Amino acid sequence: MRQHMLNGWLVAALVALICLLGITAYMEVRKDLPRVACMRDLKAVDMRAAQLESCSTACCNDTSPSA
């Protein structure tokens, strides 16, 4: 009985760990998406002047609609 209860706690701890790792990965990807999209848009449009500025400044100053 004791071993069964310990196995249950172990499974619960593993599920919690996997959930925390998934949430952390999701937050990091979500935080990085605007930077990646900005870099991709700058390469697609080939704006040489905008590439000299920081990515966030270039994207904020751009008036073209984003996908």
Rank of each mutant, 00 (worst) to 15 (best):
K43T: 03
N61V: 11
P34D: 02
A50L: 15
L20A: 12
L33P: 02
A49R: 13
C19N: 11
V15A: 03
V15E: 01
I23K: 05
E53M: 15
M27V: 07
H4V: 09
L17S: 05
S54C: 10
L42G: 01
A13N: 01
W9T: 03
R48Q: 14
A25C: 11
M39C: 07
L52Y: 07
R30S: 10
I18C: 08
T24Q: 01
A25E: 12
I23E: 04
S56T: 15
V29E: 05
D46T: 06
R40H: 15
V15S: 00
M5R: 08
N7K: 10
V11N: 07
P65R: 02
A13Q: 02
I23N: 04
T63P: 06
W9D: 04
A49T: 09
E53Q: 15
G8P: 01
E28G: 05
S64H: 09
L6Q: 05
N61G: 13
L20K: 04
V11C: 10
I23R: 05
D32P: 00
A16K: 05
A16R: 06
N61L: 13
D32I: 04
N61E: 11
C60I: 14
K31T: 03
S54F: 07
A49V: 09
H4S: 09
K43Y: 05
A13P: 00
E28F: 06
E53T: 15
A58R: 01
C55R: 10
R35Q: 11
D46N: 12
V36T: 15
A13F: 01
D41L: 10
G22I: 00
A37W: 10
Q51D: 08
R30F: 08
S54Y: 06
T63N: 07
C59H: 04
D62Y: 04
Q51F: 07
V36Q: 12
M27S: 07
T57Y: 13
L17N: 02
S64I: 10
H4M: 09
A25R: 14
E28V: 09
T57L: 15
S54P: 07
Y26M: 04
Q51I: 08
A16Q: 09
L33K: 09
C60Q: 12
A49D: 14
C38N: 02
N61Y: 12
R35K: 14
V29L: 06
T24Y: 02
T63V: 07
A49Y: 11
P34N: 02
L10M: 06
R48I: 14
T24N: 02
A12H: 08
G8K: 06
M5V: 07
D62L: 04
V11S: 08
V15I: 05
P34G: 02
L17G: 04
M5I: 08
L42N: 00
E28W: 06
M39E: 12
